[in-house]
Amino acid sequence: MDPIVLAAGTALVSAMAVDSWQQVKTATTALWQRLRPEQADEITAELETLRAGVLDAREQQDHDTEEALTWVWRLRLQQLLVNEPSAVGELRRLLEEHLAPALPPDERRGVQSIVMKAEARDHGRVYMAGRDQHITDS
């Protein structure tokens, strides 16, 4: 699954529980309106239904249900990109400009997306890490 999809799905579901939810919902619906206008009303309704589920799951401290709802939206977003591969930039923009900023700082760290590319030639080596890295080669 695309790393942007993972991050955006997580951020979207987490943002369902924040005060600025209306702005997040508007931005998310606008994405569908641009890419799949025939699905925009359905998406808006689904967002509201899932928001109620997220709020209930958080109230009950039901992490499994919240994780399941996160996967529902990850799959939705993945399907959007399958149908509209060129939309990855728009999804990244939604994540960076609307979803992540809506989250409390401690939740923002969980939705960062890291994209790394490397190429080694001849006898070259590549060491990549999203965080700490300890190399013990000699």
Rank of each mutant, 00 (worst) to 15 (best):
L75S: 15
E48T: 07
A17H: 06
R34V: 08
M16W: 09
W32I: 10
V111Y: 00
R58H: 09
V111L: 02
G130V: 14
W73D: 08
A40S: 14
I135C: 05
R93D: 15
T65C: 08
E84M: 05
Y127D: 05
E67F: 03
G53W: 11
E96Q: 05
Q39S: 11
V126K: 05
W73T: 02
E90F: 05
L99C: 03
R51P: 12
V126R: 03
A30Y: 12
V115P: 00
G89C: 07
D132C: 08
R76T: 15
E59T: 09
R92C: 07
V54A: 01
E42C: 00
A40R: 15
A11N: 07
R108Y: 01
L47G: 15
M116S: 12
A120C: 02
Q112F: 10
A120Q: 10
A27Y: 10
S14D: 01
A7Y: 10
D41W: 14
S113R: 02
A30N: 13
V88G: 06
L35F: 14
A45W: 03
M128V: 00
G124F: 02
D64Y: 03
Q22W: 09
K117A: 10
A102R: 01
L55H: 06
A57W: 08
L75W: 13
L80N: 08
A102K: 00
P85T: 08
P85G: 05
Q61C: 00
A8C: 07
G110L: 08
A100R: 14
Q79A: 15
H98F: 06
L47C: 13
A17I: 04
Q39Y: 09
A11P: 10
H123M: 03
L12F: 07
I135W: 00
L50D: 13
R58W: 01
A129Q: 07
L6M: 11
Q112S: 02
E119P: 00
P104W: 00
L95A: 05
G110M: 04
V18G: 12
E46K: 08
D2Y: 02
R34H: 01
M128F: 03
S138M: 12
Q39A: 09
V72I: 08
L95I: 12
P105H: 10
A30R: 15
A120K: 05
G89Y: 11
L55A: 04
R34Y: 03
A27W: 11
R74E: 07
Q133H: 01
Q33Y: 06
E97Q: 14
D2H: 11
W73H: 14
S20N: 13
L81W: 01
